[in-house]
Write a protein that binds this DNA or RNA. Structure first.
Lengths: 234, 234
DNA sequence: CGATATGTTGAATACGGTCAAAAAGTGTGG
DNA sequence: CCACACTTTTTGACCGTATTCAACATATCG
């Protein structure tokens, strides 16, 4: 069973981690816990303060509204850190698995202690948060200022880029287990409208999303309709 | 002229900073630079890598689309840190002043060095980023899943809370120099529709936004229409 | 095979956008 | 203090994108 330490040193774990930045803490010895597909790893408003690092699989980080609507905040992938808060307090979002999911869980308190004693770890965490920030800002642009077409196109290109940086995409193709319902909750639109939009993207030979598989067909045109620039994912 | 060090130790600078967390770095001796209203402090795609800490005044952090639309990502206020990136590279967003604005600017490189040698600073920066994360996630919920009414209500409540934590709001009243056009670019809607929405909020005696001044009238009903819970701002 | 989740399509509706113009506010110089 | 220009706010009429509701088709799974 691979420990967190071994995972951090293993081949492509995003631009997030550089080796040796994690000091020598006991939590590096933890092994990943495996969750079945569609299980809830932690729930919004819960009071446990663990932090998760995704080892493999797909997950959803989402916040619910009182009226039952939800917005998916992010789809944490291999190497992403989830759940760091600036203060003690209940969780702001829920985390659920889509596929089988392996995550390392470490105590928030211990992580903060480790940051305090090892500057490089602080930098690592700060950089990971800064990247998530950039992603959230781009999602905000999506929801606020792009129409259904370019929004959808943009997110599919983002996924490709993120997956490819952890070795899970190549040649414009990748596996994507998201349902259209989940995609809609990411993009802030209805399932029905997303479905029609995906249809249009397919008909225009830009990108095909079907059966858990995405294929970029005409990258140039797709990038143009999306207004996509991958700089924010670096 | 107050140095960054003195500022950090001065009375309410959010929950962002705790005293003594900044170690002993030369950049703590910088003094704030003053910008006139409506000046551009830095521009998206620029290659300077400075980091800004707002001392006083209102600013806008925004990203532009190719078609000329823009989405305002955040309104950094007293004590907020702007511009930290996970990697070297061009700026992802522009920063502009609305009012006269005083900001400390420090070199990204020096800050990272300081983080590496002083764990407490890493923690401080990480916490600041985590809070910004929470704010961005909430803005994403706004744009994605709340209608014009509750979205507007929600943001006005957020501003009140954020301002109050740095001593700039009390008794449900605060100064807010944002134009309706800027507010619309924050909320991802058009000026015209925002104007009508503000009218409705006023007519319903929930909150009044006029002449650079906001007044919460019926907090209970406002919180309810917004679905507002301030936990994410802690 | 039946049950449930997911995807697809159609028709009616609504929320917010677009376009245009007027009213009110702000600032500047004569 | 007024005239002028400019920005910001407000209002009206019309339009379009995305939502809603509903039905049906197609996978997926025990």
């Amino acid at each position: 069973m691979q420990t967190l330490l071994q995972f951090i040193h293993s081949h492509p774990v995003g631009g997030t981690f550089s080796k040796d930045d994690w000091g020598n803490n006991d939590f590096l010895g933890v092994t990943a816990r495996i969750y079945k597909p569609h299980s809830v790893i932690c729930r919004q408003d819960d009071n446990n303060d663990g932090i998760f690092i995704v080892k493999s699989g797909w997950a959803l980080l989402y916040r619910g509204l009182l009226d039952g609507e939800r917005q998916i905040i992010d789809t944490p992938l291999r190497g992403d850190i989830v759940g760091f808060r600036s203060v003690d307090g209940p969780r702001l979002a829920s985390l659920a698995s889509i596929t089988e999911l392996a995550v390392y869980e470490i105590s928030s308190k211990k992580l903060v202690e480790a940051i305090l004693s090892e500057g490089r770890l602080g930098k690592t965490i700060a950089c990971s948060l800064a990247r998530l920030n950039a992603i959230l800002a781009e999602h905000l642009m999506n929801a606020g200022r792009r129409n259904a077409m370019s929004r959808t196109a943009h997110f599919l290109l983002e996924l490709e880029e993120r997956l490819s940086s952890v070795g899970l995409s190549a040649h414009g193709r990748y596996e994507c287990p998201l349902t259209q319902h989940e995609l809609a909750d990411i993009l802030g639109m209805t399932t029905v409208h997303l479905n029609r939009t995906l249809g249009e993207l397919r008909k225009a030979d830009l990108v095909a999303f079907r059966a858990g598989h995405v294929e970029v067909i005409n990258r140039k045109k797709l990038v143009k309709t999306a207004g996509f620039d991958s700089e924010y994912l670096r």
